[in-house]
């Protein structure tokens, strides 16, 4: 009867953009709940409004209708308890690795700040690069800086907007593994936007599949695979095919065994 309040609750979100052709609806009636400590992916083709959705959830944009609740409280703006991780270009180029990671800790006393920065540096494997500037680092390392900058302030929730989209495919695989390791250690709630089907199946507890124009959540798929995940397991491949079919991609080589459908 008394279900615990979900960490995140998106209720009837609508969004519209002004364009030269007038108003265009970008999101229509988006509903989603994310439990504490859960890893949820928003999966969809480019232009489906998933990034807009994440920016609304993050408090950077206001929806045309609907609301976002965190711990039952409506979101009115960005908050350091919920950190947004951009693609690697979100690092501040004028600060060193250390300066970037300590950015959100300015008000804390010096020793605590240094201790937290050192821990975050170690956690993302950047030891030895504390005094380097972002333009001296590779794309993957810049992305680690972004993740460490978020972890340093110890937020409850991470919003990640295609964080690995600009990386090469090998680095991307490494970063996914690292993100899962960090997530399992720190148990943050993660809302992760991607257009990469494999990425969503490898990372998420649940995948919300979005359709474009206007953006809607078509279906939420449970990824009922034990971790660490075996990328050649039949169940993995089946889930992948399910998502592909859901996105309207005629793959159809393997028979699709639809898993339990949670919400229409």
């Amino acid at each position: 009867m008394t279900r615990p309040i979900p960490k995140l609750r998106l209720r009837g979100l609508h969004a519209r953009f002004l364009s030269s052709q007038g108003e265009r609806s970008v999101l229509e009636d988006v509903n989603l709940e994310v439990e504490t400590g859960e890893f949820v992916c928003l999966l969809g083709p480019s232009g489906c409004g998933k990034s807009t959705l994440l920016n609304i959830v993050g408090g950077f944009l206001a929806p045309a209708a609907g609301e976002v609740l965190v711990d039952g409280q409506p979101v009115t703006g960005p908050d350091p308890r919920r950190i947004f991780v951009f693609q690697e270009r979100g690092t501040f180029p004028w600060l060193t690795v250390e300066g970037n990671i300590g950015f959100g800790l300015a008000r804390r006393p010096g020793p605590e700040r240094r201790e937290r920065v050192a821990r975050a540096v170690a956690r993302v494997g950047l030891t030895g690069f504390e005094h380097a500037y972002p333009h001296e680092l590779s794309g993957g390392m810049k992305q680690r800086v972004e993740v460490a900058r978020a972890l340093a302030v110890d937020p409850d929730v991470l919003y990640m907007d295609e964080p690995f989209g600009a990386l090469d495919s090998i680095t991307r695989l490494e970063m996914r593994a690292e993100l899962l390791r960090i997530w399992s250690e720190a148990r943050k709630t993660v809302l992760f936007v991607t257009h990469d089907i494999d990425e969503s199946v490898q990372l998420a507890d649940r995948v919300a599949v979005m359709s474009a124009r206007p953006g809607r959540i078509r279906r939420v798929v449970d990824i009922d695979l034990p971790r660490p995940r075996d990328l050649s397991a039949p169940r993995y491949l089946a889930l992948r095919d399910t998502l592909m079919a859901e996105l309207g991609l005629a793959h159809g080589v393997r028979a699709i065994t639809p898993p339990r459908q949670e919400r229409a």
């Binding site: 950077f60 703006g77 908050d79 951009f86 693609q87 979100g90």
Partner: peptide, 9 residues
């Protein structure tokens, strides 16, 4: 993104 990151913190 730099402005948003600043506000986020």
């Amino acid at each position: 993104v730099h402005l948003r990151a600043g506000r986020n913190f």
